[in-house]
Amino acid sequence: MTISRLTRYALISLMGVGLAFIYIPLTVVVVNSFNVSRTFSWPPKDFTTQWWSKAIENTGVREALKWSFTAGLAAAGLALVLGTCIAFAVSKYSFFGRETISLLVVLPISLPGIVTGIALNNAFTQDLGISTGMFTIIVGHTTFCIVVVYNNVIARLKRIGGSLQEASMDLGANGITTFRLITLPNIAGALFAGAILAFGLSFDEIVVTTFTAGPGIQTLPIWIYNNLFRPNQAPIVNVVAATLILFSLLPIYLSQKLSGDSNTGGRF
C-alpha cells in the first residue's frame, strides 16, 4: 500500500485540525485567566495578573484545595492497598472466580458515575443511616480508584514474572525478605504511578463527589461548579481552571517516566 502525497498532506492537516480541536479550548482558558475584563469578553482587551493574586488569597479556593487533597490522599492510599492485594491474588494464584474479580474491579468506572454516585448515596443514607461527609467521599473515590492501581501493578507483575522471587527463595530468603528486597523494589515504580493516577482521578472527580459529599464540604471541582454561574466569581474560576490545566501536565509526565510500562491506556 502506498500513500500518495495528497493523502499524506490530507492526513497531516487532519492531525493538525484534531490537535487544534484539542488544544484551542484549553489555551483559551489559560489566556482568559489574564483577561483584564471582569465578565467574559473575547478577545481580551488587556492583560493583568491581579486575578491570580486574588485567587491565591481566596479562602473558598484554599478550603476546597484542602478537602480535595484530603480526599485524594486517603482514596489513593486505600486504593493502593486494595488494588495491590487484588493484583497479587489474580496474578499469583488461580482460583474460582478469578475472571469475575477482574470484571468487578472495572465495573465502578464502566458504569456511569451518576449510577455509582446515587447507589452509594442510597446505601449510605437510606440503608446504613450514615450522613454524607468526608468519610463517604473517601469510600466513593476509593471504589473507582482501585482499578488504576490494579491495572498498573498487574501489568508490572506480569512483566517481571516469578523467576526472580523463586531465585531469591532458592537462595534461602524467606517470603518476607523476598518481598522486601526483590518484589517491592521491582514494583515500586508501578505502585507510585498507580497512586498518582488514583490521586489525579480522585482530584478531578465531580459526579460521585456530588452524591457523597455532605452540604458542608466543597472539593475543588464542586467549588468550581458552584461558582461557575456566579458572574463576580468568574475571574477566580478562570484562574483555578488555568492552574488545573497547567498542573495536568505533571501527572502524565511523572507516570510515564516512573511506570516505564508503555500503558497507552494511562488512565485506565
Binding site: 479550548p25 482558558v29 478531578d204 461557575l228 495536568s248 501536565l249
Partner: peptide, 19 residues
C-alpha cells in the same frame, strides 16, 4: 499530546467550551 488532556480537569474542559 493526545494523552495530556485526559488529565486536564473534566469540569475545566466543559467550562472551556462555554467560552
Amino acid at each position: 499530546l493526545v494523552l495530556t488532556p485526559l488529565w486536564a480537569s473534566y469540569l475545566v474542559k466543559i467550562y472551556a467550551w462555554r467560552t
